[in-house]
Amino acid sequence: MRITQGTFSYLPDLTDEEISAQIAYALGNGWPCAVEFTADPHPRNSYWDMWGLPMFDLIDPAGVLHEVQECRRAHPDRYVRLTAYDARYGRQTTALSFIVGRPPQEPGFRLDREETSDRQVRVRIHPYALDRPEDTRYDAP
């Protein structure tokens, strides 16, 4: 099952050329970029590990793309995303965020149904990855 989060989530994975075009768009708008990675891509997990520092001083998309490629090489079994920040509001505001790297195998989710009082039904999403230890959640079985 494919994790879908952020901008472009329902499109096929972007090529490096397409990623570079999006980086150029972000930098053209004055949005600094950051590269992040995680083994837990749950939608409520907004705190991914930072790859280096946000690139406030880069104006060339090639420099940001290089950091994306280095992060993917260092963490081939993790999710990698690119985030661009808009500082016009005086606080960290995400203007653009999308996944640029995925593990080779994504374990997927199941729906757990629970019947409660007064015939109410609750449905919860359970990621199969949670059945394994944190550091091995996305390793091949």
Rank of each mutant, 00 (worst) to 15 (best):
Y128W: 13
D139F: 06
Y10Q: 08
E115T: 12
G90Q: 00
Y128T: 09
D131I: 06
V68E: 00
E36M: 06
A62K: 09
E106R: 08
G90H: 02
I3Q: 13
G63E: 10
A74T: 13
A87G: 13
A26N: 04
G108S: 06
E106I: 02
R132P: 09
V123I: 13
D57V: 10
T93E: 04
A26S: 12
R124F: 15
D40H: 14
H126T: 14
E70F: 01
L96Y: 02
I125M: 15
R137Y: 00
Q120A: 13
S97I: 00
Y47L: 08
E106D: 11
S9I: 08
M55V: 08
M55G: 15
R113Y: 09
L58G: 05
V100N: 03
H66R: 10
H42T: 15
R72W: 05
H75N: 12
Y79A: 00
G28N: 02
E106L: 08
R102N: 08
S9D: 09
D135H: 14
D40V: 15
R72Y: 03
L111D: 04
P12M: 09
P61T: 09
V35H: 03
P43F: 06
F98Q: 00
T116P: 10
E17L: 09
M1F: 08
L111K: 04
A129R: 05
L96V: 01
I99C: 01
R78P: 02
R78C: 15
Q69G: 05
P127W: 02
S20V: 03
D131W: 08
D118Q: 15
P76A: 14
H126S: 07
H126K: 11
Q120V: 10
R113P: 01
T136I: 12
D13I: 03
D60A: 05
T94S: 02
Q92F: 05
R73F: 10
Y85H: 04
Q69A: 10
L53C: 11
R88N: 04
R124A: 11
L130M: 10
N45E: 15
Y89I: 01
H66L: 07
R73G: 03
D112Y: 06
L53D: 15
D118H: 11
M1H: 05
G6M: 08
T116D: 11
I59Q: 14
D139A: 15
P103M: 12
D13K: 06
T7D: 11
H66W: 05
R78F: 15
D60N: 05
R2K: 14
P61N: 07
D16S: 08
D60H: 01
R124W: 11
L96R: 02
R81P: 03
G63Y: 07
D135M: 12
A129S: 13
E36W: 04
S97H: 00
R110G: 14
A26M: 03
H42Y: 12
D13A: 14
Q69E: 10
G52P: 14
M50R: 12
L96K: 02
L14F: 03
G30H: 04
R132K: 13
A95D: 06
D40S: 12
Q69P: 02
S117C: 07
R137E: 00
Q22R: 14
S9V: 05
D118R: 12
R44I: 08
I19A: 09
